[in-house]
Design a protein around this nucleic acid. Structure first.
Ligand SMILES: [Mn+2]
Ligand SMILES: [Mn+2]
Ligand SMILES: [Zn+2]
Ligand SMILES: [Zn+2]
Lengths: 136, 136
DNA sequence: TATAATACGCAATAATGTTGCATTTGTTCT
DNA sequence: AGAACAAATGCAACATTATTGCGTATTATA
């Protein structure tokens, strides 16, 4: 059994979720891509064909188990990625290049958590836009 | 003529845009609300009835003139707000309460602009989630 | 292997946003 | 004020993304 597959199985086991074909395939696709992608991109990246609805429901169950979360970019469709590079309070920043359009996960960039009087801040998400190393 | 209306007219004049009923109404609605709202909320907040498409096209033209910009929250629909509380490089942070669901503009909270080697960062947007003063 | 809980596929529907085109409105110039 | 032109508007149709209902198939467990 490939390393990716056993990784995916372990994630599902640890989360107490049924270990189904669809969940394994989606997790493996997200592991391979390692960036936020849409339902459509996930569907295309899968080895086996699955119904759109199944992908959405899979993402939903993985989301409730905190294995996956949504990323909101300047595009119509939601993007999804694995949560394993994020802390509970802070997802890593996402950078989108205004030139080439690519989005990069800046997993090594740690920004200080904001404070504001009277507010309890539980989570912080940062979106950056500009020029990527290739395009500047 | 009311202060809101002349404010709206000045914004359109300064931007070199036609001063139309729809644009005036939309800007005045956004001035009154003073928080990010959806096309549907804008339409409901208007005195006169306008077609959905007109609202979208109005937001588009105001957006191109940098009078308005989109705000992405954890909801399906895009939200829109006036840009007058934002600098070119950084929009003020938006806080959404996980309890009551309300979104607040933290216009007085200034976060340092991120730096990352090799990247030219032109714009930064921050979304915060947690408990608002009423709900904590 | 039997059972119950859960996930899946398919069809239908909802929500949000966009496009084409004929008509109306706003601006500018006389 | 009136004419001429550019731009905005309304309406119908369409596109994209996500959700719901329900019957069937798969999974975990004993
Ligand atoms: Mn990421
Ligand atoms: Mn705001
Ligand atoms: Zn680039
Ligand atoms: Zn609250």
């Amino acid at each position: 059994m490939k390393a990716l597959e056993s990784h995916a199985k372990n994630m599902l086991k640890a989360a107490g979720l049924y270990c189904t074909r669809a969940r394994l395939c989606v997790i493996m696709a997200l592991l391979r891509e390692n960036r936020p992608i849409t339902q459509e991109q996930i569907t295309q990246a899968l080895d086996a064909p699955f119904d759109r609805v199944t992908i959405y429901r899979t993402l939903d169950s993985l989301g409730k188990a905190d294995l996956v979360h949504r990323v909101f970019l300047e595009e119509r469709a939601c993007h999804y990625e694995l949560s394993h590079h994020c802390s509970k309070t802070q997802c890593h920043p996402h950078f989108t290049c205004t030139q080439c359009g690519q989005t990069h996960c800046l997993t090594d960039l740690k920004l200080p958590l904001a404070h504001h009087h009277g507010y309890v801040i539980q989570r912080q998400q940062v979106r950056l836009a500009g020029l990527c190393p290739q395009c500047r």
